[in-house]
Structure formats: C-alpha cells, structure tokens
C-alpha cells in the first residue's frame, strides 16, 4: 500500500500540468480582465526601462556600458522573472495562502507542501507582461551587442535563465517563509526582492563595495544578470573566470534553493506548532 501511495516523477509532472491546465482555464474565464493586467504590468515595467533609456540617450555610455549593453543586461531580469511567475507564482502568493486557509487544505493532501504551493499557481498575466518587456529588450539587443548565437552560447543562455529563475524563486521564498510567523510581509518582500532587483538593473560596477558584496553573496542577483552579461558581452572583467561564468548561475541557484528550503522547513515546523 505504501508503495502505491508514493508519487513518481512522471506522476508529479503530469499532476503539475493538470494544475496548469486548470489555471489556464480559469485565466481564460476572464480574458479581457487578465489581458488588461498584462498591459498594466508591461506599462509599469516600462517605467524603469524608460528611465534607463532617457539616461542613456543623454549620456551615451557610462563606465564602458552603452545603451544596448545596458538593456541586454536588464533583459535577463525580465525573462527570468517571467519564467518565475509562471512556475513559482505560488511562492509569491504564499502569504495569501496562509491567510485564506489554503495552506491547511494542502496539509490535508498526500503531497509535499512545497510541491502543492508551486503547482497550484501560475500567473499568466505577469508572465506575459514581464515576458513582453524581456523579449522586446532581447530582440532589440541580441543582434547588436556582438554575441555569436552558436550552440555553446545558446546553451549557456538557457542555463543562465533557468538558474536565474531559481535564484529569484529562492529569494521570494525567504520572504514567504516569514509568513509562517507574521501575517503581512508585503513590504518586507519588497525590501528584500524588488530593491535588490532595482540595484541589479544597472551594472554592479556602478555601486560601492558593500552593495556589490550584497548582490553577490547575500541576494545573488549578480548571477542572474551581471556575471552572465560580462560573459556574453565579452567584457574585460570576464578573463579571470572565462567560459565557466554562465554555469555558475544554476549552481548558485541550486545551493540557494537548498538553504532556503531548510529555512522553509523550520518555518513550517513553527507553523504546525502555532497554527494560523
């Protein structure tokens, strides 16, 4: 009986897509509304793009970075975030799940908690909104910043995007862990995530040492876009580590996720002793 109740990887994958299908159906129930949200998110994200654009047409090049290189650097954040809200939206909405009692419902099911949290949400509107910004930036810059899109670089690019997604998911998960203790963590998350992301929009070399270390070791956004960009743009700084740089991103992602998952389990233990 025990064997029958264990889930295999194909079963979990199948169940994940059953969820995704239902989420897509729900989204289509409100086609107009959800599309409007995509447009709104697109506009909101364009604010910082416009700022960068305005600064760059005025100053042309800052510390060796020109407009296209800068926008290429920024595009990583959008593409990986777009993937993040598609796969890991549940981690983002975890706060609400705790408050609505959905978490308790998950605890009554024979599946892992984190699996259910991840599988039960996908934010198609945000995926589209952020994705559109990211793809526009990539299309605008991919051909003009001197990257040779051969197999090696394409694979490296995919590894960077996937790793970057997991890194951002882990950072979000840090703040969602706090939901096990306090109820409202919106600002705390903004603090941890969106501010770090704001820093990461520009090259790390613009910042004083403390912030650089912060973005490398504590909130490793440097691996989401800065280090990979150094590699793809063939910046002089890249010569020290060379071709391995892009593959650091998934490694950092995996390590970070493991660490945060430990914290998550600790939080869950607290939750099960205190409740909602």
């Amino acid at each position: 009986m025990d064997k029958q109740k264990m889930f295999t990887i194909p079963e979990l994958t199948k169940l994940f897509f059953v969820h995704t299908k239902l989420i897509a159906k729900t989204t289509l129930e409100y086609k107009f509304h959800r599309s409007l949200i995509s447009v709104a998110i697109f506009c909101r994200e364009m604010i910082s793009i416009v700022t960068m654009y305005l600064i760059m047409i005025r100053f042309v090049s800052i510390k060796g970075w020109d407009m296209n290189e800068m926008l290429f650097l920024y595009s990583f954040l959008f593409i990986s975030y777009s993937l993040f809200v598609f796969v890991f939206a549940g981690i983002r909405d975890f706060d609400a799940m705790v408050q609505s009692g959905e978490l308790d419902r998950f605890l009554l099911r024979p599946l892992g908690l984190i699996y259910q949290v991840i599988a039960s949400r996908a934010d198609f509107s945000a995926t589209l909104g952020h994705g559109a910004v990211g793809v526009i930036l990539l299309i605008k810059t991919a051909g003009s910043v001197g990257i040779e899109w051969n197999l090696r670089n394409t694979l490296a690019y995919i590894a960077v995007i996937l790793g970057g997604t997991v890194i951002q998911a882990s950072l979000f998960m840090v703040s969602s862990c706090f939901s096990f203790w306090t109820v409202n963590t919106t600002n705390l998350r903004n603090l941890v995530f969106f501010n770090a992301r704001r820093f990461a929009a520009y090259p790390l070399s613009f910042y004083p040492g403390v912030i650089r270390y912060l973005l490398i070791f504590l909130l490793p956004f440097a691996f989401v876009n800065y280090f990979p960009s150094l590699y793809f743009l063939n910046k002089p700084e890249v010569s020290i580590l060379g071709g391995w740089i892009p593959y650091l991103t998934p490694v950092v992602g995996a390590v970070l996720f493991f660490l945060v998952y430990t914290f998550w389990k600790f939080g869950l233990k607290h939750y099960s002793s205190v409740g909602n």
Binding site: F178, T182, N184, T185, T186, N187, L188, N190, L191, N195, R198, F199, Y202, I211
Partner: peptide, 18 residues
C-alpha cells in the same frame, strides 16, 4: 502592521541610494 512599518523606511532609503 509592524514589519511593514520598519521595511517601508528602509525601502525609501534604499531607493535613494540606488
């Protein structure tokens, strides 16, 4: 919302520094 209040302060300051 205690946590929110503390974080809001830092939020503004971080924005200024970036």
């Amino acid at each position: 919302y205690r946590v929110n209040s503390y974080a809001g302060i830092i939020n503004t300051i971080v924005m200024i520094f970036v």
